[in-house]
């Protein structure tokens, strides 16, 4: 799905494009309720904001929610197909490859490129410097900030890509730790 379409669906659900899966679902439930029931915000304009119009709005909401979910599911399947780990998604809870999940910098880069997002956009929205993002993707551990900061950056970046921030960060940091232990052994 193009970045533009993706953005439009997020707009319909009235959430930021960095919203988490649970935020997407909450927004969907809230809007569905708003446009399908009478309330003090609907009743005063019920005569002009007709059932038919409201139905059209509801259809848009439904479409946005379905498409966003499909997109995430799709991402999950493709990445497993390529021998890459499943992308943590609340809707896809097979959990079998849970142990072998690997969110390498390269996988993050692939997901980002597939969405047609430039690193600068990520930097702008996450307030993480471009160099740091680059180093994260290339796993240049020696050039990356300390673990606590790194973990925050990776989580934010993952959230931006609609991934589960905790799973991604834990996985990423585990490799960072392995590298660090390795360096220590050598010295």
């Amino acid at each position: 799905m193009s970045r533009k379409n993706l953005k439009r669906y997020f707009e319909i659900l009235e959430i930021d494009s960095g919203a988490s899966l649970s935020e997407i679902r909450n927004a969907y439930i809230r809007l569905k309720r708003l446009y399908s029931t009478d309330s003090i915000v609907i009743t005063p304009i019920a005569d002009e904001f007709s059932k038919k119009r409201r139905l059209a709005v509801l259809q848009q909401i439904e479409e946005a929610y379905t498409k966003l979910n499909e997109e995430l599911k799709d991402e999950h399947q493709k990445s497993t197909y390529f021998g890459k780990p499943g992308i943590a998604s609340e809707n896809v809870s097979e959990g079998e490859e849970g142990d072998s999940v690997s969110f390498s910098g390269d996988v993050l880069r692939q997901i980002r490129e597939k969405r047609g997002i430039h690193l600068y956009e990520v930097a702008l929205d996450t307030k993480i410097r471009v160099e740091i993002l680059e180093n994260i993707e290339h796993e240049r551990f020696d050039a990356l900030p300390q673990e606590v900061y790194l973990k925050g950056h990776v989580s934010n970046y993952a959230r931006y890509l609609l991934l589960d921030p905790r799973k991604v960060a834990d996985d990423y940091i585990s490799r960072y730790k392995a590298w660090k232990a390795d360096v220590k052994d050598k010295t």
């Binding site: 009235e14 708003l34 915000v41 304009i45 119009r53 709005v57």
Partner: peptide
């Protein structure tokens, strides 16, 4: 508080 979010939504969507 939800009334604020709802109003915002309707003003845009309608």
């Amino acid at each position: 508080i939800l009334i604020g979010s709802s109003m915002k939504s309707i003003l845009m969507k309608y």
